[in-house]
Design a protein around this nucleic acid. Structure first.
Lengths: 356, 356
DNA sequence: CTGAAAGCGCTTACAG
DNA sequence: CTGAAAGCGCTTACAG
């Protein structure tokens, strides 16, 4: 017990060198696995290192080499299945390339995102993957570029930044899902997102600061327009940030003059909340209200009815982002581009013709 | 584009010092926020730092101070809701105390756990929280202690190690849940876990290497014994690692001479798989088979019927572990102990009297 | 209050 | 193949 109480100075190359009776440089060479050393001496050093339980100080190593071997990832909310799946994809790609990952949460707040980025830059990460909370406000990201740290955007793109982005095909996905519902006869639809409520309702889709949401909304709206349905912008609702807010959004929607008969949920958290709202209102799916949710989250397949979803292949998105960043770190010559990962509609049982 | 292509040398205290026309030491003092500096000079330095976009190199800082400000966390699987919730609790506690968190996955494999621990020690984390894959095989954890790095065990305890552990009250939780089912008349029960199958069936609960599972199984078995039910050990099944394996386990169980009428799932992933297995077998819950799952995962409340669960307060567990580790890092005098976070049974609709 | 020097534990030329 | 020295960017005594 007492032996661990005092945080003793850890054993260094110098200690190993002394024990092995060689110079620091020689010990460092075998311990660091670089340069050339005779087998005999190598064995000596290894034996000494093992005896002393030497563990390299990666901090010092990074200081000398200028590489930390760490990839920084800033996500919106690690508890969201979307992000934890993405992080696994990123981690897998990173590990394969010999990098480790350090994760920070922004809570989708610009301020938190800024400090997370600063922190990671401070730790001298070799590269950064970030899910920008807003596609305006990007000074901190410009700074990352100026600092020469490779950057890949995830899930959302900011063309003005001139960096790679890995996203879904959000517009197409929204179009497919919306059309699917329109084709089944729905004339009153609503799109529901957890984004902060733009006060005063949505005037202009171009002003939505999250590019993924913007493109989905644009896809949604375009289908409504092409079907000749009125006021498509009024069918887009924000603010479904928690169960209570979602209940309010859904209740307000359903008490309108022409209530929607079909709902499109912007992510699986919103989808789950909508499901609960409808359930608590005693409405049944799909006979009273149809719904489709983004993301093939686990809960969507075990409800009654199971939920029709847009499968986003988030793991692949994460993996691709990780691979892309590694390529950048290693200076592979590559044009800056936006990589889109395709989605597909998984038809289950939550959409029917508008009923009664 | 070209300006970011070359990863330019980053700006250092020396650069700022030169621009502010002061010594390195002085610049370092204001930039590092230590020592005393006149307001006038402080302003000069800050202005220069802002102009140059100085960002401290935390690596160098850590080298000098011997503190990294990082807490390392090794979890079984970050995609498991149990761990992502725990990580949020840990992160919150860490952030509050001014620490950052770096997460590594072990996939519940001892080897991966060992390298993750080595890696984190190499990065000179200030402390470590680990979910030991096995409660035997703990050389690497002994080494952590010998290196003087504070360590807190999460979810599972290893008394021989003499370090703090934060766990649930697994035995009591299992007892409560099992009793609940026995009290409703069940005489044939089974406990199902995703742990690797011990070849040859379970002989001795003491040999289960994961203490959380062991204690749950012991609780489960003790209730069966006290109810005078035969062969309690045979009612414990491992290997429900994925859907296919779980289907096999469930099918085997239900085809026995006296098939179980009530199932206890060791975690929410296993619970979900069991739910699907039963569903695909056309069995209904609870009229054909009753079930209870550990962890109040989101899917459990939206199924039909909603699932009766053991609510584990995982966020609190994580927070407590984080706080405890911080206290250790900061040398708060505290006895080594095992902290148990209480659980509660959330009764929903998945248990009924054994029917038919 | 400010500065010059040493040191943290590595790696990287540069000699021998 | 091996060693002595300088340097990475900070902080920390030690002087002045």
């Amino acid at each position: 017990m007492e032996d661990s109480a005092a945080s003793k100075r850890s054993v260094t190359v110098a200690d190993v060198a002394k024990a092995a009776k060689v110079s620091k440089a020689t010990a460092a060479r075998v311990l660091g696995g670089y340069g050339v050393v005779s087998d005999k001496i190598k064995d000596q050093v290894m034996a000494a290192a093992a005896a002393l339980e030497y563990r390299p100080n990666e901090l010092a190593r990074s200081m000398s080499t200028g590489r930390s071997g760490i990839i920084g990832v800033v996500v919106g909310d690690i508890e969201n299945a979307f992000f934890s799946l993405a992080v696994r994809g990123i981690s897998d790609a990173a590990r394969l390339a010999g990098y480790n990952v350090i994760i920070a949460n922004s809570g989708e707040k610009l301020d938190a995102e800024k400090s997370a980025v600063d922190l990671l830059i401070g730790k001298r990460v070799d590269g950064l993957i970030v899910t920008p909370a807003r596609c305006d406000g990007m000074d901190h990201l410009h700074h990352v570029r100026r600092a020469g740290v490779p950057l890949v955007l995830f899930d959302r793109s900011i063309p003005e930044l001139g960096v790679d982005a890995v996203t879904g095909d959000d517009r197409d996905a929204a179009i497919t899902a919306t059309r699917y519902m329109v084709d089944r006869g729905h004339r009153h639809l609503a799109y529901i997102s957890a984004m902060d409520d733009e006060d005063g309702g949505l005037i202009d889709t171009g002003r939505i600061s999250n590019s993924a949401v913007r493109e989905r909304v644009e896809g949604f709206v375009s289908v409504l327009k092409e079907a000749g349905l009125p006021n498509p912008l009024c069918s887009v609702r924000f603010g479904a940030t928690d169960q209570q807010q979602t209940d309010a959004v859904v209740r307000r929607l359903l008490s309108e003059a022409s209530p929607p008969t079909a709902l499109l949920a912007s992510d699986s958290l919103v989808g789950l909340r909508i499901f609960r709202s409808l359930q608590s209102l005693g409405l049944s799916i799909p006979s009273d209200v149809s719904m489709i949710s983004f993301l093939d989250a686990d809960w969507t397949s075990v409800t009654v009815p199971p939920i029709t979803v847009i499968d986003q292949r988030v793991y692949d998105m994460g993996k691709l982002a990780g691979e892309r960043l590694v390529a950048r770190i290693e200076r592979t010559p590559l044009a800056v581009e936006r990589l889109r990962v395709g989605t597909s509609l998984v038809v289950r049982g939550s959409v029917a013709a508008p009923g009664r």
